Simulated scan of single mutants.
Amino acid sequence: MTTHNKSSKSLISRRKTFFGIGATLALVGGGGYASYYLSSSPKQRINDYPPQSIRIAWPKSESDSLLAIAQTEGFFEKYALNVTILPNIQNHLQAMDALKQNLCDAAVLSALDWLPELLGGVPARLLVGISGGNFRLLASRKQRIDRLIDLAGLKIATHRHSAKERLFFSILLRRKGLNPEQNIKWVEMEKEELLPALLSNQVQAIIGNDPLMWEILSHANKQVFELAGSQSGSWSSRANRILGMNNQFLNTNPNITTPLALSIRHASKWQTEHLQETSMLLADQLKAMSSKEILAMLKNQNQNIVPINNQLWEQVAQYIDEFKLLGKVPNSLSSSRTARQFCLSIQS
């Protein structure tokens, strides 16, 4: 068999595994969580970590490429981790509810979703960044909009349940001297209504995240353009999604933090080095885009952003500073000290 055939066969196998993860992990639940025996040989493990189990609420896990890679490429297994993903978690509200009800031990949320919960006293700590942001603001080429400040008094549409996207762009607008609550007219729409509303001038800009925004940009690039997003500036190297862990679980499983963070870092590094293969993994899920368009999207996004330790708490402190900018936390609050309290330190 040729190398090419072997590679193709391996990819097909991984794709099959990828799309079976949701159903498989749902079955792992109960008994699998309690009676876990690592199947890989000690030679395949890294640093001989003892077998450990964890349940994670990971929104939209069935289409998450980083999670699929960590599973199918064996990165969790190499660190002797038995990771159970809660089924049917579609958004941050469901993930946080699961964490609060002790239905899971950890959750993956946007930093913009984590902070209000942590500031409100949720007993959890942040361990590792999962990925960078992929927020985009698109405007019509017909409009005389060249800068964010040109949006003053205009309408910006968001899709429903897009609080973090609106919060992100509120921060950008506030930096430019606009009051996002007073100077912008926010409109909520269904996802399929966004582009028609923009092209008909019902709204002057639309916001969201990938893959939706990249799909719109790819298919209507002669009519719309990206005015701002998280791919440049200080946000380009900052984590958006972060994995945080329940304090009670941490107290009884303190040794799981290092292997879990490192397994995610290794999976992220693999993805960065195999974007072509990652695009093929996503092709069956993102049916509205070709694998070529998906690859272009991945290349445009900021890859391998998985901060831990000092890098993580510094980024969390930046988020807290931006919450101050919007008046969501008092200026007297120490961003640095608070971020250190929220974040875990591990030996890497």
Rank of each mutant, 00 (worst) to 15 (best):
T3G: 10
N5F: 08
S10M: 11
G20W: 07
I21R: 07
T24W: 11
G29T: 11
G29C: 10
A34H: 13
S35N: 12
Y37S: 09
K43W: 10
R45T: 14
I46K: 13
R55P: 03
I56W: 14
A57I: 14
P59R: 06
L67I: 06
Y79R: 14
Y79D: 06
A80W: 06
P87C: 04
A98C: 11
K100D: 07
N102G: 11
L103R: 15
C104N: 07
L109E: 11
D113R: 12
W114L: 12
L115F: 12
P123W: 14
G133D: 03
R136G: 00
K142P: 02
D150V: 05
L154V: 04
T158H: 14
S162Q: 12
A163T: 12
L172V: 08
R174D: 08
Q182H: 15
G208P: 07
L212P: 00
V224N: 00
E226R: 08
G229S: 02
W235N: 00
S236R: 07
L243N: 09
F249Q: 08
N251I: 14
L262C: 10
I264R: 00
K269Y: 02
Q271S: 04
E277S: 09
L281E: 07
K287I: 13
L298A: 00
Q301S: 02
Q301N: 05
I308N: 03
N310M: 07
W313K: 05
W313E: 12
G327M: 06
V329T: 14
S334Y: 04
S336G: 06
R337L: 13
F342Q: 11
I346Y: 11
S348M: 09
